[in-house]
Structure formats: structure tokens, C-alpha cells
């Protein structure tokens, strides 16, 4: 991985995070919302890898494993919610579930 400057890696991570975030706030379909979340998580994980490599520390990769595990857990809960959403509202629109508005 030598030769790739840290800035490039971090900029990539920031771009990925922004893309994911844009997807999160723009898409109403819950499947895409979950996918955007995955992108954001992976962007954060990439930042860890880049940082760990730049400083030659193993913790970056340890954090990556942690993020992957977290993403898996998040995906399973998210998919369960997705099924419930579809079951209750017959739609995947997250804005349909707004019964707790003030």
C-alpha cells in the first residue's frame, strides 16, 4: 500500500461517506436507506484502515473487523425492521412510519 498518500485514502473515505449520507437523506425506499448506511459504515472503516496503515499500527485493522461485525448486526436488525415495515404499511417508504410525530 506504500505509495498511496494518506490524503487520497481519506478523501476517498470522505467522498464515500458523503455519498452514503446523501443516499440516506434522499432515498425514501428503506432498502436503499440501509444500503446507504452500509456505504457510510464502510467509509468510516476505510478511514480506519488508511490511518492504521499510515502510522503502521494494527488497531486500524482491528477497528475494521469491529465495524464489519457492527455492520452485519445492523443489517440484520435493519432487515427485520424492513420486513415489519412492509408487513404493517405495505410499502417500503420510511416516511410512512411517522406515527410518533409530535
Amino acid at each position: 500500500m506504500n505509495g498511496i498518500p494518506m490524503e487520497h485514502g481519506l478523501v476517498l473515505a470522505a467522498i464515500l461517506f458523503t455519498l452514503g449520507f446523501a443516499g440516506l437523506i434522499c432515498r425514501r425506499n428503506m432498502v436503499f436507506v440501509l444500503m446507504s448506511l452500509e456505504v457510510m459504515l464502510n467509509a468510516a472503516a476505510l478511514a480506519f484502515i488508511v490511518g492504521g496503515t499510515a502510522w503502521g499500527q494494527p488497531e486500524g485493522q482491528a477497528m475494521f473487523l469491529l465495524v464489519i461485525t457492527l455492520a452485519a448486526a445492523e443489517a440484520s436488525v435493519g432487515l427485520a425492521l424492513l420486513i415489519q415495515l412492509h408487513h404493517r404499511f405495505k410499502s417500503l417508504d420510511v416516511d410512512a412510519a411517522n406515527r410518533m410525530r409530535g
Binding site: F21, L24, I25, C26, R28, V33, V94, D95, A97, N98, R99, M100, R101, G102
Partner: peptide
Amino acid sequence: SYTQSGKLRLYATSMA
């Protein structure tokens, strides 16, 4: 209470 719109995306935006 107006800010509690129940719109998930709005929450995410305001959090960001």
C-alpha cells in the same frame, strides 16, 4: 413538538 415530524430522514439531516 413541530420538529418531531416523524420523518426519519429529517432526523438524520438535523443530526448531521
